[in-house]
Simulated assay, not measured.
Amino acid sequence: MEAITTLNLPTAAGREAIRQDLEAATQAFLSSGGKVQEVEGFERTRPLPGRREVPRSKAPIKRNRGLPKKHRLTLEHEQELIAIIRQAAAAGQSQSAAREAAGIGQLLFMSLCLENNIRFMKAGDARQIANRERAKTSKAKRDALAPKVAAYAHMGIIACAAMLKISDGHVRRIARENGIVMKGCQ
């Protein structure tokens, strides 16, 4: 490809030379027996009007902004929201769950919590409490099974586990926690 210089810039004379070359090539093609095949194609439509042609409206655009928001709470409604938030905090819900339950925005939620000294547990604290509760219920179940393990202690760990339909690991833990001596584990 040639580099563009001031000598070969596209000018009217340069374009005329290209048109003549193209016309000569077309004549040579047709004289050698070539045929021009016309295909259906794009039908030209009326061009879209430019931006300057768009008619301006006579009246300015009026936006429907709706009714103004009520920014003030009644004392009764505020007390209801505080009660909902306190219940959610006592139940161990997250802040976002309590806010959604109350149906209020974050700014109002945070201001109500600060004004009324409502504290929520952190996510890690909630998990620790749930783990403690689960540990207490598991310990209660093991303590309920301890007399049965003591009764079957003479049979051994595997037989005791089969009789109580629990794992041998559970039998070992119950025996260890309650000081039960199992057969074959002296």
Rank of each mutant, 00 (worst) to 15 (best):
L67T: 05
C113R: 00
C113A: 06
K136P: 12
P60H: 12
V149S: 06
L145C: 12
E115I: 01
G92H: 10
G33F: 13
E76W: 05
H77C: 02
I166K: 00
G66Y: 00
L81T: 04
S31Q: 12
I158H: 13
N8C: 04
R46P: 10
K62C: 04
L112Q: 01
A153L: 13
Q128H: 09
A146S: 04
G14Q: 15
A59I: 15
Q95I: 04
L114A: 13
K58W: 07
M182P: 14
A161Q: 00
A162K: 00
I85P: 00
A101H: 13
R173W: 03
Q87M: 06
R51W: 10
V54N: 05
H154P: 13
R65P: 05
G41M: 03
F120T: 02
R119S: 02
K183V: 04
I157S: 08
K139I: 10
D21C: 10
A97C: 09
P49V: 08
K122L: 07
N131P: 11
L75Q: 06
Q95V: 07
S167W: 01
A97W: 11
I129Q: 07
S94A: 00
I174H: 05
R51C: 08
P68A: 07
Q93A: 06
L7R: 15
C160H: 00
P49T: 11
A150G: 07
I166Q: 08
L9C: 07
A28N: 14
D168G: 04
I129T: 06
R132L: 14
N116E: 14
F109E: 02
H154Y: 14
R72P: 01
A102Y: 03
E16H: 14
K141A: 08
E23S: 15
S96N: 15
M121W: 03
R134H: 09
E40C: 07
A24Q: 08
T137F: 11
E53T: 14
